[in-house]
């Protein structure tokens, strides 16, 4: 069937297209593109480091916030709750995954950012202000706010996969634990330990999603191409620089640089997603074989 092959062709075509369109930027800047932090469309100097930094930090932070919550939810839904409550709850979490990211961003600007500016950030500053992460003026928008929005968005994904992975752990193992006198939590802990490679896969997949997320992040991260230690400062991500500048890019070099940023983004998400999928495949196959 030709159409099935067309999916593979599309992916190959995407890679080829982006590679070809970013030739100019690669010829002019070479590897320096990744390590330079100048981004100046007027002087036609382009370096992607601030964007890479913003993307990596915001996504990792989001994962850090989201992972414990997701595991908690998965355990709650799988092990603690009876069926009558499970169905509506898992439906609500699915909806959370389906809300368009533009709405998250919109909500982020008008609800979360003021809340961060007036409540959370001053609180963090007064208690943990001696750390470099929490210095600077609390604008409301910035790395931390973006990470929280991202965490909300990736929680349903990580939860869903963690639930699948937990389901794949045989019940007999849990029963054996109970028979040895384990408490409920100890039995669950054992199941979680056995599922760790699957959970790792789930979180890597969530990370991939967070890295590629565009609209919501663009709206709350502040959009300034700078690297700073403080989480309150505005930053920029790879996806949002493309969203903001692509349509109005001046000159071929600018466009070509933006496409190269896209190429880096694509490469990173591609590697991360393949890794996650392989982990999850091998995990489910292993448990099915048992």
């Amino acid at each position: 069937m030709i159409f099935a092959c067309s999916i593979i062709l599309i992916v190959l075509f995407i890679i080829a297209e982006m590679f070809q369109d970013s030739v100019e930027a690669r010829e002019v800047f070479g590897w320096k593109f990744i390590f330079s932090s100048d981004w100046d469309p007027v002087k036609e100097k382009f370096g992607a480091l601030p964007f890479i930094f913003g993307t990596v930090v915001s996504s990792l932070l989001a994962l850090l916030i989201s992972l414990p919550i997701s595991i908690g939810v998965a355990v709650f839904l799988n092990e603690l709750v009876n069926k009558a409550l499970r169905t509506p709850l898992s439906f609500l979490i699915e909806i959370l995954a389906a809300i368009p990211s533009i709405i998250y961003g919109f909500w982020g600007i008008f609800v979360l950012a003021p809340f961060m500016r007036n409540t959370v950030q001053p609180l963090l500053q007064s208690t943990l202000g001696f750390l470099p992460f929490f210095k600077g003026t609390p604008y409301g928008t910035g790395l931390l706010t973006a990470s929280i929005i991202l965490a909300i968005m990736i929680t349903p994904i990580i939860t869903a996969i963690t639930r699948d992975v937990l389901k794949a752990i045989p019940t007999a193992q849990r029963e054996a634990a109970y028979a040895l006198g384990a408490t409920k939590w100890e039995a669950i802990k054992m199941a979680l330990l056995n599922a760790r490679s699957g959970i790792l896969g789930a979180s890597v997949l969530g990370l991939g999603r967070a890295i590629g997320e565009t609209m919501a992040v663009t709206m709350v991260i502040g959009n300034r191409a700078e690297i700073s230690a403080s989480l309150f400062e505005p930053a920029y991500t790879m996806a949002s620089v493309i969203a903001n500048e692509f349509a109005e890019a001046s000159g071929n070099l600018h466009v070509s640089s933006l496409i190269e940023v896209g190429l880096i983004l694509f490469a990173v998400t591609f590697i991360i997603n393949s890794f996650a999928r392989l982990l999850i495949y091998s995990f489910t196959r292993k448990t099915e074989g048992k």
Binding site: I7, Q20, L265
Partner: peptide
């Protein structure tokens, strides 16, 4: 596998592709 990977490709990348 490729379908799974394609579903993980950021939508903005698809935009660049359509642009090209």
């Amino acid at each position: 596998f490729v379908t799974d990977v394609l579903s993980g490709v950021p939508s903005i990348i698809i935009g660049i592709f359509a642009y090209g």
